[in-house]
Simulated scan of single mutants.
Amino acid sequence: MDSNSTLTGKIALVTGAGRGIGRAIAGRLAQDGALVGVHYGRSEAAALELVEEIRQNGGRAFALGAELGVPGDAGAVFEAFDAGLRKEREEYGGYGAGEEGVREEYGRYGAGEKGEREKGERGEGEREEGESAPAAEGSLDILVNNAGTSGSGPVSRATPEIFDRMIAVNAKAPFFLVQNALPRMRDGGRIINISSLASRRAFPESLAYAMSKGALDTMTLGLAKELGGRGITVNTVGPGFIETDMNARRRTTPEARAALAARSVFDRIGRPADVADVVGFLASDAARWITGQYLDVGGGTDL
């Protein structure tokens, strides 16, 4: 595999990794040496195909399925992630089992670390005093909150159901995925949230979607400050128009494609790899001094 090996020994989870931007991100992290959990909601065949592709190229990956935007979604994702990781370790070994950084006792941030909760201050999913720590602790280095949904329409066409769906998938799910990830994440880890230029531009044609991505941007800021003591960086990547299934309806004619391309100074529509390469950088040690930032990956959109 043509690998930079910058992430060798690291474990990553990429949500919504079966298609589009998430697929490119998972492939890039695997190329750089990480063991990648390829999450999917409904695209099982695509996720399994990607895992096979990564393995054939000399990388390591496993698929895990769980729908987002439903009650208990974050817990279901990590239940599947933990099971997939255990199986991967049993078959191939390595990647965190018994390595430095595995937490052995209580607390969301590990015993004795900055941010350890006092007794009685447990959050959702945290353990009572005296309960044993799960074997999953110390089993994650990189979380990429990529999965999302779009198509909310303008305010005049919005419904409570559509609004709730946007918030549930694009904001609530990442929030609780982070909550579940932190006990597992080793110090010096990476949280990378995939947002959208829609959160930084007037985007009335999909207002609830833009609002949900704005919430993700705000989460990045708070987490970056909270987790700095553990050396965990938290950043947002904001893609512009990228050629994926999600926005295919906006590229149905040559004229429509040309109009989208013209919004970039490079006069083209972005590719998933354009975003994946930025995520690969943020996941690496080269980005250790970058946190709490929104990286515009829009190819100079609307300059």
Results as ranks from 00 to 15, higher is better:
residue 150 S to R: 12
residue 204 P to E: 04
residue 179 Q to G: 03
residue 224 A to W: 07
residue 182 L to D: 02
residue 244 T to Y: 02
residue 221 L to V: 13
residue 182 L to W: 00
residue 216 L to Q: 06
residue 208 A to Q: 09
residue 157 R to L: 15
residue 234 V to A: 02
residue 205 E to C: 09
residue 193 N to H: 09
residue 149 T to Y: 08
residue 243 E to W: 10
residue 253 T to A: 08
residue 255 E to R: 06
residue 224 A to M: 08
residue 216 L to K: 04
residue 195 S to V: 12
residue 271 R to A: 13
residue 269 I to Y: 09
residue 228 G to C: 04
residue 234 V to I: 11
residue 153 G to Q: 05
residue 200 R to K: 14
residue 182 L to H: 00
residue 246 M to I: 07
residue 164 D to K: 15
residue 271 R to P: 02
residue 157 R to I: 11
residue 214 G to K: 05
residue 220 T to R: 01
residue 160 P to E: 12
residue 168 A to L: 03
residue 187 D to R: 15
residue 274 D to T: 03
residue 252 T to V: 13
residue 179 Q to L: 13
residue 158 A to R: 01
residue 254 P to L: 06
residue 165 R to M: 12
residue 184 R to H: 10
residue 261 A to G: 03
residue 206 S to I: 04
residue 258 A to M: 08
residue 224 A to T: 09
residue 232 I to N: 00
residue 184 R to P: 04
residue 215 A to G: 11
residue 251 R to G: 11
residue 231 G to N: 06
residue 177 L to F: 06
residue 152 S to N: 10
residue 211 M to I: 15
residue 186 R to D: 09
residue 255 E to Y: 08
residue 182 L to P: 00
residue 151 G to Y: 03
residue 241 F to P: 11
residue 153 G to H: 06
residue 258 A to W: 07
residue 206 S to L: 06
residue 155 V to E: 12
residue 171 A to F: 06
residue 208 A to Y: 09
residue 150 S to C: 14
residue 270 G to A: 10
residue 165 R to S: 13
residue 260 L to V: 05
residue 228 G to S: 10
residue 229 G to F: 02
residue 255 E to I: 06
residue 181 A to P: 02
residue 274 D to P: 04
residue 220 T to S: 03
residue 223 L to C: 04
residue 235 N to T: 07
residue 166 M to R: 03
residue 168 A to Q: 09
residue 276 A to K: 02
residue 199 S to A: 15
residue 191 I to Q: 01
residue 254 P to R: 08
residue 265 V to N: 11
residue 273 A to F: 02
residue 163 F to P: 01
residue 170 N to Q: 05
residue 233 T to Y: 00
residue 208 A to D: 11
residue 188 G to R: 06
residue 189 G to S: 10
residue 212 S to L: 09
residue 227 L to S: 00
residue 174 P to C: 08
residue 250 R to T: 15
residue 256 A to H: 08
residue 166 M to H: 03
residue 228 G to A: 12
residue 207 L to I: 14
residue 228 G to V: 12
residue 216 L to M: 12
residue 262 A to S: 13
residue 176 F to G: 06
residue 229 G to E: 10
residue 166 M to F: 04
residue 165 R to N: 14
residue 240 G to D: 05
residue 207 L to D: 08
residue 210 A to H: 03
residue 262 A to L: 06
residue 272 P to Q: 09
residue 231 G to Q: 07
residue 223 L to D: 00
residue 162 I to P: 00
residue 256 A to K: 14
residue 273 A to I: 13
residue 153 G to C: 06
residue 163 F to Q: 05
residue 201 R to W: 05
residue 147 A to P: 01
residue 227 L to H: 01
residue 229 G to M: 04
residue 148 G to H: 03
residue 172 K to T: 14
residue 196 S to W: 00
residue 264 S to T: 15
residue 192 I to H: 07
residue 257 R to F: 09
residue 221 L to I: 13
residue 248 A to E: 14
residue 207 L to H: 08
residue 218 T to W: 10
residue 240 G to S: 12
residue 191 I to E: 04
residue 196 S to R: 03
residue 234 V to N: 01
residue 161 E to F: 14
residue 215 A to E: 05
residue 179 Q to K: 15
residue 192 I to F: 11
residue 198 A to Y: 02
residue 213 K to G: 01
residue 252 T to A: 15
residue 157 R to M: 14
residue 270 G to H: 05
residue 203 F to A: 13
residue 236 T to Q: 10
residue 239 P to Y: 02
residue 212 S to R: 08
residue 215 A to C: 13
residue 184 R to A: 11
residue 252 T to S: 15
residue 233 T to H: 02
residue 274 D to I: 01
residue 258 A to S: 15
residue 228 G to W: 06
residue 225 K to C: 08
